[in-house]
Structures are given as C-alpha cells and as structure tokens.
C-alpha cells in the first residue's frame, strides 16, 4: 500500500444531521448496503460485511473519541477497541435498535472505562497532558472540506482551536452531549439511548454545557 495514498486518503467530513446521522442507509441514494443489511450479514459471520460496516462508521467513531480524549494514538486504539466490542456483541444486537446509537453506547463505555483507568493510573489527579498534549496537533490536522482561501483557513483553524480548548475545559459529560448533539446531530432521545440516561438528564446537561461553553468562548481573549 502506497504510504502517500494512505495519508492522503484521510477524510474529513462535516457534521451529519437528520437521517444520515441515524445510520439507515448511505443517505446519497447510492446502492451502498444499509446498516441493517450489513449488520444482518455480519451476524451471519460474513466478515466482509463487518469490514464494510467498520469502513462506513470508523470516521465518526474516531472523530468522537478524538474529541473526547484529545490524543490521536489513544483515539486510534480506543476506536479499534470499540469495533472489537461491536463485533463480539453483534450476535446480541437486536435489529429493532438503531445501530449507530448502539455503537455510540459502546463508544461511550470504552471511553469512560479508559478515563476511569487513566484517573486511577494518575492517582486521581488531573492529567494536564490530557488537556494540552494534543491540542496543537489536533488543530494542525484540521482540514476544511473545500479549498479555502488562506485567511479563511486560518480563521477556521483558529476558531476550531478555541472551541476545542473550551470543550476540554468542560466536564466529559457536558462535552459528550455537546458533541453528540451539535456535531453528530443526534436528537435528545438518541443521546439518552447512547448515554443510557433519561431525556431529562440530557436536557439538563445540554442546558448547562451550552452556558459554560458560551461563557468560556466569550471570555477567552482572541489570540
């Protein structure tokens, strides 16, 4: 495999809202198999179908984890762990559930297990590296979906850096609801299902998360 092609094949896509986020079909009218079909074939032991499922969803899982843990290598490993767990749990997955919501629930559990373990490893102290280590690298890899003018690209990068830094300063619970709602485009019910909590909890977290985030972004001096 050509290394250059591998690197350049790294795709960055914008937020997904509405039906596309709900994991039904390809959303673009193509003949791409739906999640339901791929899941069914995977459950029958067809690894190629599972591989297609991974290819279809790895970007969203990785982006979500990367935004939560802010470390490329950890995000890569945790994404792998998510899909291993998805594969193992697929026989128990019931078709009436939404695959993406179910997958995000596994993602949520993997990330929180990792955070808990990390907290134990650092004797409960806040790991500064978690907040700052990858903030520059993460911004550096942000590529606009279209070719922007240099000043636009810089503005985009700067805004992303500010938002990512602000997101790292709110609690993981608040960060997660913001990412699921604003970035992944989930509705309240889907967020509640993914996080295994009530809709009321989701609304409350969203309410305070937005307030905190807005305060952080408003008071942060623009560098």
């Amino acid at each position: 495999m050509n290394l250059f092609r591998q690197i350049t094949s790294k795709r960055v896509m914008g937020p997904v809202f509405g039906d596309a986020a709900e994991g039904g079909g390809s959303g673009d009218g193509s003949d791409e198999p739906t999640d339901v079909e791929l899941v069914r074939r995977s459950q029958d032991g067809d690894y190629r179908a599972f591989d297609a499922l991974v290819t279809k969803h790895r970007g969203r899982v990785y982006a979500m984890i990367q935004n939560m843990v802010k470390n490329e290598a950890d995000a890569w490993d945790l994404s792998q762990e998510v899909f291993v767990k998805v594969w193992k749990a697929l026989p128990k997955f019931e078709a009436r559930a939404q695959f993406t919501t179910w997958m995000y629930r596994i993602t949520h559990n993997v990330v929180y297990d990792w955070m808990r373990k990390r907290k134990i490893d650092t004797a409960g102290e806040l790991d500064d590296n978690l907040l700052s280590r990858e903030s520059i690298a993460a911004g550096a890899q942000a590529a606009p979906a279209r070719t922007a003018r240099p000043d636009e690209a810089m503005e985009h990068q700067e805004l992303r850096r500010r938002i990512e830094e602000a997101l790292q300063r709110i609690s993981p619970e608040h960060r997660e609801v913001i990412l699921l709602r604003e970035v992944q485009g989930f509705d309240y019910k889907e967020i509640a299902d993914a996080l295994d909590c009530s809709i009321g909890t989701v609304m409350s977290r969203l309410f305070y998360a937005r307030k905190k985030l807005q305060k952080l972004l408003t008071h942060e001096p623009e560098s």
Partner: peptide
Amino acid sequence: RRVIPASEDPPYPDFF
C-alpha cells in the same frame, strides 16, 4: 458544526 468534523478517518485507515 462548521469547524468540528462529525467524521474524520483515523490515520492510516486501511491499516485500521
């Protein structure tokens, strides 16, 4: 929504 991508392929996606 404008600056945080919902989907971002992991580095070396084929190797992934």
